[in-house]
């Protein structure tokens, strides 16, 4: 039997060397993409599961856009410009679906794979490290979120809901939102003990979806409540996409992006450390 491993290890070690300087040894082998590759193989057969997630925001858009639009008509969008109610909620629904997709993947799916399928135990028995696993799984959540976002944006384009050329940037922005929620979702999941704990995720997600200014402007809230909502991540996602769709870019954009970058980084580091604690003990 010949051993193919040494040259590949050398190559991956070289790639990983930069990362190893900032991370504890053994946390990262520079091969998170193989975890992503696994996900592609799994979902190649069950693409219907993926497809279904595409419809959720569309149903909201049609139900509220056509139904409520008749009652509401035009509202004031970013920068105080009047826009149709459908165009007002469309970017918010995009942000929400990016969140929902990433959270679903990184909580339900990850919990099952961690506790029942023992998938990560199998991965960590190989030369992969916990950060490879975390990056690969979050990468998958990201790809899936990107698919949904692209599909939804095509619908927006067809329906004439895109108000500016900046709207194209909603795609990377939606990916950033998905990335941050995926990373934090996986970190939170690593603390969960049973399927009942997962219900708590919905308790956090559903109110955030309803009250983060998805369907109306935050100006309806009293000042204190507005401050609370402005601290929530989905609010930043909605404000970011709504601004991009209308082409109203201000300093707040940088704050939104920074918010999600920090959120993603914290989630990723906590996830890698928790996987290390949970599975490598």
């Amino acid at each position: 039997m010949t051993l193919e491993a040494p040259p590949t290890i050398a190559a991956s070690n070289a790639r990983a060397s930069i990362a190893l300087r900032v991370l504890p040894p053994g946390l990262y082998a520079g091969r998170g993409y193989v975890v992503l590759e696994r996900a592609f193989r799994v979902y190649r057969r069950s693409w219907m599961v993926i497809f279904s997630g595409f419809f959720e925001p569309l149903f909201y858009l049609f139900a509220l856009g056509t139904g409520l639009h008749k009652l509401v008509g035009t509202v004031l969008g970013p920068g105080g410009h009047p826009i149709s109610y459908t165009a007002f909620i469309a970017p918010a629904l995009l942000a929400s679906s990016a969140m929902n997709g990433a959270v679903y993947d990184s909580t339900m799916n990850v919990f099952f794979k961690m506790k029942y399928a023992k998938l990560y135990d199998a991965m960590l028995a190989t030369s992969l490290g916990p950060l490879d696993v975390a990056l690969g799984e979050i990468g998958w959540a990201l790809f899936r979120g990107g698919l949904y976002a692209a599909g939804f944006m095509i619908v927006m384009l067809v329906m004439g809901l895109m108000a500016s050329a900046w709207a194209v940037l909603m795609l990377p922005a939606a990916l950033l939102i998905a990335c941050a929620f995926g990373a934090v979702g996986m970190a939170v999941t690593s603390y969960m003990k049973s399927f009942q704990d997962l219900d708590l995720v919905q308790v956090a997600i559903l109110p955030m979806f309803l009250f983060s200014g998805t369907f109306y402007s935050l100006s309806v809230y009293p000042a204190w409540l507005r401050v609370v909502v402005e601290c929530l991540p989905l609010h930043h996602g909605i404000a970011m996409l709504r601004g991009l769709n209308s082409g109203v870019l201000d300093g707040a954009m940088i704050a939104h992006v920074a918010y999600f970058l920090v959120m993603a980084a914290v989630g990723l580091v906590v996830t890698a450390r928790r996987l290390d604690r949970l599975l490598l003990r």
Binding site: E4, A5, A122, M123
Partner: peptide, 13 residues
């Protein structure tokens, strides 16, 4: 696929 993917985890081509 179980065998194939596991080999990929090791970085095999």
């Amino acid at each position: 696929e179980n065998l194939y993917v596991y080999g990929r985890y090791f970085g095999m081509s």
